[in-house]
């Protein structure tokens, strides 16, 4: 059976952030995983960008498991956006992109944005000199660019 890969942005409520959630998630559902980013806020809420790899059924079961614990899941693809009209394809963003979701196409000399590889770390949003990379949160687009985009 072919494996699928899901990249998830997880928000853990304070009462869950102390539990071995990821450990149980992968053990119960027989998943492979890769933590791309994790932090705990001063209010004990946890945030994690997590890649899970397994067959489709296992992935779905895993996501159900997380939801039952009260962990909020946002698909990562919606998190970082590129304002196409603004991007000048200089290539500077490729300097720090940890997953190579942003990379220079050597023939066209344009910067490719491979959403499926993006871990939503947000480094590009502060690095892009013309602010063409924006982070979308629950409250809409972060970064002041929204108007005129």
């Amino acid at each position: 059976m072919s494996k699928t890969k899901e990249t998830l942005c997880l928000t853990f409520p304070p009462e869950v952030s102390g539990q071995p959630v990821v450990c149980n998630l992968v053990r119960i559902n027989d998943l492979d995983f890769n933590i791309l980013k994790a932090r705990i806020s001063p209010k004990q809420e946890g945030q994690m960008t997590l890649e899970i790899i397994g067959d489709r059924k296992q992935c779905r079961a895993g996501m159900r498991y997380l939801k039952e614990l009260g962990v909020k899941i946002t698909p990562v693809a919606q998190k970082i956006q590129r304002i196409e009209d603004s991007c000048v394809h200089c290539g500077l963003c490729t300097a720090l992109c940890p997953t190579k979701a942003l990379r220079m196409d050597l023939n066209s000399r344009e910067v490719l944005f491979l959403r499926e590889k993006c871990s939503a770390c947000g480094l590009c949003t502060s690095l892009c000199p013309v602010r063409a990379m924006v982070l979308e949160t629950e409250n809409g687009i972060w970064e002041a660019i929204a108007e005129g985009a």
Partner: peptide
């Protein structure tokens, strides 16, 4: 530099452009 990587001393180093080639053209 355009090829994406150069050798500096012993190591292979990724290259990062600042000038927009598409707009230059």
């Amino acid at each position: 530099l355009r090829s994406g990587a150069i050798r500096v001393g012993e190591r292979e180093t990724a290259t990062v452009p600042l000038t927009s080639y598409t707009l230059s053209l």
